[in-house]
């Protein structure tokens, strides 16, 4: 068909940048993980599996023998648990929110969508900072509690697993609400009416009629929350303060203060593998459902 055909050339610069700064660096990460750390950061050329060994073992200072260390497993385990917890909480809060939004009149619905989406476009750093200012030792909550005399000393909310979880839910709630809302909008309202007609109460309708029929939307929401939460960096960095580390800020540490690039690269490879592993069942299921 005549018309635009050679316009494909226009797309090449985008591929170049994407490949040069997306695809190739990813390959470099793998390469880096197989090298030795340089003295002041960076790498020294030479194949080495030390970085991967370091994920599970450390050298005992006295015997020099590799000893099993659960440090990494702990951090990755926490990442998985926190991501899972975030997903569950987002689901619990997001589903009723999305359902309520879906029953608003069309004009109001647009404002709701805007309101839920807007925070996503502001800096995550600033939003997480705002949380810090509320739950910190000198923050709003502790300040008010101390002043009213309900407590004697500030409650340590910051730098805990709780803080990171709160931050993750705060950050990813819109990612659950929007796909679920989209699925609810497409839901046939007559299903709900049929449920009501057959004597189902409000809660039963919500969980036995609506929920099973928006499964694709729920799955999309869960993926959109779980996967980024798994690899989250800013939130554990600011709200975890090194005491509730997740994979993300652990990796960054190796490229910052700890100056062990290959280890950081190996940790990054482990994280991406985890993300892909989480994605695989969904991809397979989609293939089977076809």
């Amino acid at each position: 068909m005549s018309g635009i055909g050679t316009g494909r050339l226009l797309a090449w610069p985008a591929f170049l940048i994407a490949g040069l700064l997306g695809g190739i660096p990813m390959a470099l990460v793998i390469a880096c993980s197989l090298m030795k750390p340089g003295a002041f950061g960076g790498v020294e050329w030479g194949l080495s599996f030390d970085a991967y060994r370091a994920l599970l073992f450390r050298r005992d200072i006295f015997s020099g023998e590799p000893v099993f260390s659960a440090d990494h497993l702990l951090i990755y385990g926490r990442s998985i648990l926190l991501a899972a917890g975030t997903t569950i909480l987002c689901l619990a809060i997001g589903f009723p929110t999305a359902a309520h939004m879906a029953t608003r009149p069309p004009r109001a619905r647009k404002w709701w969508v805007l309101a839920i989406t807007l925070p996503f476009w502001t800096s995550l750093l600033v939003r997480t900072l705002a949380l810090m200012l509320i739950i910190g030792d000198q923050g709003l909550i502790n300040g008010l509690l101390l002043r009213t005399g309900l407590i004697q000393a500030p409650v340590a909310m910051l730098h805990t697993n709780f803080a990171v979880l709160l931050g993750l839910v705060y950050s990813f709630l819109p990612f659950m609400v929007l796909p679920v809302f989209a699925a609810l909008e497409r839901l046939d309202p007559r299903l709900v009416e049929a449920g009501a007609d057959l004597y189902a109460g409000r809660w039963r309708i919500a969980f036995l009629v609506i929920l099973p029929n928006i499964r694709p939307g729920l799955v999309a929401g869960c993926l959109l929350v779980f996967l980024p939460a798994l690899g989250s960096y800013v939130v554990p960095l600011m709200l975890g303060g090194g005491r509730a580390m997740m994979a993300g800020d652990l990796i960054a540490l190796q490229f910052g203060g700890a100056r062990n690039w290959p280890l950081g690269a190996a940790e990054a490879v482990a994280l991406v593998t985890l993300v892909l592993a989480a994605l695989l069942p969904c991809w397979l299921m989609r293939g089977r459902a076809g």
Binding site: I93, G94, P96, T97, A99, H100, M101, A102, T103, A115, I116, P119, T122, V126, R127, L129, A130, L131, L133, I134, L140, Y170, L173, P174, V177, P189, V192, E193, G195, A196, R202, W203, I205, A206
Partner: peptide
């Protein structure tokens, strides 16, 4: 469809909106 949803859903929706904006508003 609204009258078939649990009334608590509206409360949760309002609460989540509050949750999303409160920290930013406090900061501001």
């Amino acid at each position: 469809m609204q009258r078939h949803l649990p009334r608590a859903f509206g409360l949760v929706a309002g609460a989540s909106l509050l949750f999303l904006y409160a920290p930013i508003l406090v900061l501001g």
